[in-house]
Design a protein around this nucleic acid. Structure first.
Lengths: 190, 190
DNA sequence: TTGATATTAGTACCAAGTGCTAATACTAAT
DNA sequence: ATTAGTATTAGCACTTGGTACTAATATCAA
């Protein structure tokens, strides 16, 4: 017998958030109250019924699927001058860091840099041939990484472009890299 | 009036796969048949009812959330000898390639290599300091990338480990890289 | 003891079905 | 044309997990 209502309602909110698949009946049993009480609680807390909750979860998943292609570019490009330079930002979230110490996994920074190197060329399509990168300082969840890519040189004979990329968090450099890109015009240059 | 049944059933399967949120009634209207017919079709095709479908989608999303930490490692590690060598495989899917030409984005290969380099050390935690990589041959959707990481040397004073990584598809090298890793024992080595 | 708030109970109703039976309709073959 | 066999439609009872609403109790505090 919990200190009624307030406590129960906050527990209830938690529980449902944690597991939206629970029915009123199950909740009633768990809190030792009637189903009606649970319903009243849900009303007051504006928590939708089971089916609506499930539908919401499913719909979200569906939106994700639809927007998955967005994942093709890591980071949001905020400025670009084709064949010259480009800037993107990337907000590091909990999902990008090691659980153990909160430091961002290197490949996310690499992905942002690589995506930007590809984007700045965009000659139909560019592929990374080589790259040389340094992870200068650890990046953490919550950090906003600003990445700049600058075209440094070209070798038109071999269809190569050299790009320098630097990423920083609050004006401190966290990542540096050089990318050698191959630019292809026609399709299928296996 | 479609060439009944077979055609309708295959269309129906498609439709539901594409949009699981559709009710029997809507389908009946669309195919100009009765709701019962749709039900019979679903029976025959073993397609569950709307609510079950939605629940499945939601449950999948939920499983994903729970297993998201798995995403922390790109590729599946199939063999590992700590501090010595490790092998992982990674199946390239449509979601990893450029839509335009079907070639895998470099950062996915890098991610696999980087993850493996981290895993082979696993001294509480390893961070990538520098890396030098080459994308030797394009990789395509459907390819299975086998990646090997080998510890090449150490510099215990500076807590460094050098790792060589090679990835291949059907015994052809597609990616090579050298990784310089920093190994940390204690927490918080800001 | 009175009032207010909280809880429980009970009824009618809904959506989107399942499960079942029975009646038609359509088609193909003899 | 008749008959068999499949396909389609109709109708009814029942199920889950609810909503909406009314009415009866409990509980607690002043």
């Amino acid at each position: 017998m919990k200190r009624s209502k307030k406590e129960r309602q906050s527990l209830l909110t938690e529980q449902i958030a944690e597991n939206p698949f629970v029915t009123d009946e199950q909740l009633a049993a768990e809190f030792n109250v009637s189903v009606q009480t649970i319903r009243l609680d849900r009303m007051e807390l504006a928590i939708p019924e089971l089916r609506e909750r499930i539908k919401d979860v499913a719909a979200k998943k569906y939106d994700e699927v639809k927007s998955l292609p967005l994942d093709e570019v890591i980071g949001e490009i905020i400025d670009i001058e084709l064949d010259n330079r480009a800037i993107s930002i990337f907000d590091v979230g909990e999902e990008h860091v090691f659980q153990r110490n909160g430091i961002a996994r290197g490949h996310h920074l690499f992905a942002q840099a690589n995506s930007l190197a590809v984007a700045v060329i965009d000659d139909e399509l560019a592929l990374t041939v080589k790259s040389n990168v340094a992870f200068v300082k650890p990046v953490r969840a919550g950090n906003r990484v600003v990445t700049k890519a600058v075209v440094k040189g070209k070798n038109p004979d071999k269809n190569r472009t050299f790009i320098e990329v630097t990423s920083s968090v609050e004006n401190e450099i966290v990542f540096k890299g050089e990318f050698e890109m191959y630019r292809m015009k026609g399709e299928e240059t296996t």
